[in-house]
Each structure stands twice: as C-alpha cells, then as structure tokens.
Nucleic acid binder design. Sequence first.
DNA 1: AAGGATACAAGTATAGTACAAGTGCGTGAG
DNA 2: CTCACGCACTTGTACTATACTTGTATCCTT
Lengths: 243, 243
Amino acid sequence: MREIRYRTIAEQLRQRVADGEFALGRTLPSEADLSRHYGASRVTIRRALELLRADGLVDARQGFGWFVAVDPLRQSLGRLGTIEAQLTASGVHSERRILDFGFVTAPAHVAMVLASDTVLEVRRLNLADGEPFARVTVWCPEELGASLSRSDVERAPFYELLSEPLGGAVQTIGAAVVSASDAVLLKVPLGSPVLRCERITASPAGRPMLLSEHVFPAHRTEFVVDLPMAERSIAPTGMRLVD
Amino acid sequence: MREIRYRTIAEQLRQRVADGEFALGRTLPSEADLSRHYGASRVTIRRALELLRADGLVDARQGFGWFVAVDPLRQSLGRLGTIEAQLTASGVHSERRILDFGFVTAPAHVAMVLASDTVLEVRRLNLADGEPFARVTVWCPEELGASLSRSDVERAPFYELLSEPLGGAVQTIGAAVVSASDAVLLKVPLGSPVLRCERITASPAGRPMLLSEHVFPAHRTEFVVDLPMAERSIAPTGMRLVD
DNA sequence: AAGGATACAAGTATAGTACAAGTGCGTGAG
DNA sequence: CTCACGCACTTGTACTATACTTGTATCCTT
C-alpha cells in the first residue's frame, strides 16, 4: 500500500495544532517553510492544509497566512449552546408557559435601560419534561413589540420574532435568595438560592433593545464559561463588586 | 509561526497601560517615540494603537497625543479583567490573607481533575479595603507547587509564580448557600446566598494544572459576560442543568 | 493519480516619506 | 497685562516600494 504523503503530513499538522503549538492570534509557518521542513513540495503541503481547513481546524487568508481557526465563540457555543438547545439535543421535552403578556409602564430600571416608557412585558416559565427550571421576564420597547401576539411568543423564541437584527449583549449573573412567588413557580423551598441572570441585548448599532431576567434554581443549574486563551490570572474573570 | 508585529506590540502596550504606567491626563509617548523604542515604523505603531483604541483602552486627539481612556462604561462592557485589577484600578486597597498552606492528600474530585494524589492546597481570603469579598482555595499538583513557599503565595498572584505557561480554562459559576465556616470568614449571616466559581486551568497542551474554587458573597458581587456577536437567542448562553 | 517544479496573480504587513491639520506654548507687539 | 502670531510637536492620511504570503494554473515525472 502506497503512502499518501499529504495525508500523513496532514495528520502530523493536525497533531501539532491540537497540541497548541500555534497560538491563536498568530500564524502557522508559511507554506514555503513547511515545504522545506517536511521536504515536500508546496502543492503537497497545500493539500494537507486544505484537509485541515475542511475540518474547520485552520483557515487561511491570501497574503496573510494560515492560522488556527478556533473561533472561541463557536467553540464554546458548540459545546454549550443555550440551555434549550442542550435540552432538545438530549431528548428532553422543552416547553414554554406564558404567565403574563402585555404592555405596561416600564419599571424604573427597565425604562432607563430601554429608554422607553411603555414596554411589552412577557413573563413565562420554562419547563424541561414538565419540571420548571427557569422563570423568565423579557421587556422590549413598545414599537418593537407592537407586532407580537401572545401565541407568537408561546410558539417561537423571542429573537426569531423580531424583524430587526440583534447585535451584542451583556449578561450579568448573580446569586440571590428565591422570591416568594418564584419559589412557588419553580417548586423550591423558601430561602433557596437562585442564579439570577440579567441580559441586555442591543441592536448592531448599540441601542439596547431587549432586557431579560432569568431566574434559575441553583440546585439544578450552573453557568459555564470556556476561556480559550491563557489569561494572566486564575481568578474568575468578569466578576465584579456591586454596590 | 510568523509573528504579526503590530499585534505583539499592541499586547505589550496593553500590558503597560494595564500596569498603570501612563497617567490619566496626558501620557503615552508620541508615535514617533514609540516607533524608535520598538524599532517599528510609525504605521505599525499606529496599527497597534488602533487596536487598543478599538477596545476603548486608549484614545487620541490630533495634535495632542494618545491618552488612556478609562471610560468606565466601556470598561465594563469591553474586556474586563480580573476583579483584583479592577480594584487596584479604582484605588481600593487589595489584600490576600493566607488561611492555610500545605501539601495534603487530594480530595476525591481534586485528585480526579489533577490526576495527582498529593497536592498543594492553598486557602486564602481576599479583602478589599479590609472587607472580605472572596474565599479562595487553589489546588495544584505536588511537583508544580514544590518550589512555592507560603510567603511567595502571599506576595504574588498564583499564575506569576508558576514557571510553566498556562493555557485555557473552563469556569463554572453556580449559586449556593454559604457554608458555616465561610459565613464567618466572609462576615455574612448564615443562609446567605453565595456565588461559587470553580475553575480548571490547563497547560497549553491541555493537561489540568490548577483547580481553584472561589466563593463570593452574593450581595456584593456579580458576574459579567460580554457577548460581542449576535447570538441566536436571548437566553443566557453557557447555562446548563446539573444533576 | 500523486507528487514535484515553476510561474504568475493577488492580498497583506511593514518601512519610508510626505504633507495636512490640530494643539500647546513661548514670544513679542500692543 | 493681553492678544496674536509663529514655532515645535502631535496625530491623520495618503502614497510608494518591498518583501512575503496564499491562490491558481500549467507542465512534467514517477
């Protein structure tokens, strides 16, 4: 059996990439360098690299070079994703039950964030196999929510219903003691700890468009962050003191 | 591996800015000075500075110069560093008090993660202006901690003491009720909620090298994640159910 | 069919240069 | 003392040139 050179070279390169020999921001040696190093022609090196590119392991830009293509976001999303995606992936029946749906005068901090007096407020309960695992409230400006109906919200995720595209988001996670009403909804004893997650989703231009509050019972949930690059500390990044 | 010059220069400048080398008012050397200092052309220096400007770390005015732009809003929105860096940046006196230091037989889950029976265990209390805000335990394999002394750990951050470089990390955040001993240390009432953060830091090759547990009182701390790109959900990403 | 050798096109990073335009400051005229 | 001007220095921007990179095609050998 004849040895297919570019395949073996691809395997060796795949190993070197997996070993983290090449840092994230920087590039792999040039095709010419690799050609010299492996004693193979540039064409062969190229075929090997194309194999890795097909796997999404590396990518190249003309005139720049080859680089490790670990999009950290996709990486962590691929592993984690939203909790609903994990649930459906593992065969658990996921369900949304609408508790409240209506236009209200915005609470103070909501009005401040969204810069809108009247907002659409949607409160709902998320269930996995019939057991509640999250109580969610979403607020959005009146003009944005005007075209939404209660059945829309029950049927599809919120982001799918909005016509305008969304940009980045900032998410804060804190711990708290469950409120009396949430204790009933989530079926946990009074005094239980909960994870409280507040998220501000903005338009691509940066204008806040959605404010959401998620409350999870602590005993069933935890938050995972994948930090691909070396940070200069072992302390949790992102943690901050509040007043 | 080819080095992209302006990126490495940007990293060095980012470090110098983070170290507070430049005061708030005036500050950075001129592009010409930096060009001479780094032996790079002005164009390259400029590209490095533009990178930092994109992060909101510095800004420039024509005819005036480059200066540190500590926009507190963008600071929290952009890449926020460790909590210690934030504290020192805002002038709060940060302090580490060592509670325990010694080699112990590893608890079960620690032994499993680090693949080591005997480990160095360091327990400490972090204080901001004399008030405790975190109780931290760090475990590392025996051979890695052999060269460390108690005063070393008290003096410098852990990551600075290790000779070997660190790679990525995975961080999980959960809520819990404070333990009796932590309640005393953190000066919070029994039954208070805490944020519990567990972090596994690995070598570049992927071998787990450090396991750390951080416990924060919930009323003073929260966790912030900045999600730059649009995600296809408004649900908190990274949240997962645990058994 | 796999690999080698070569040539060329096109993109990128950097160096170097030049000039426009804004800022700060000293100096001299009034 | 006050004001206007000039000068030195800064960033902003444009351009050329060069070296190096990937992208692509062609022809040849085994």
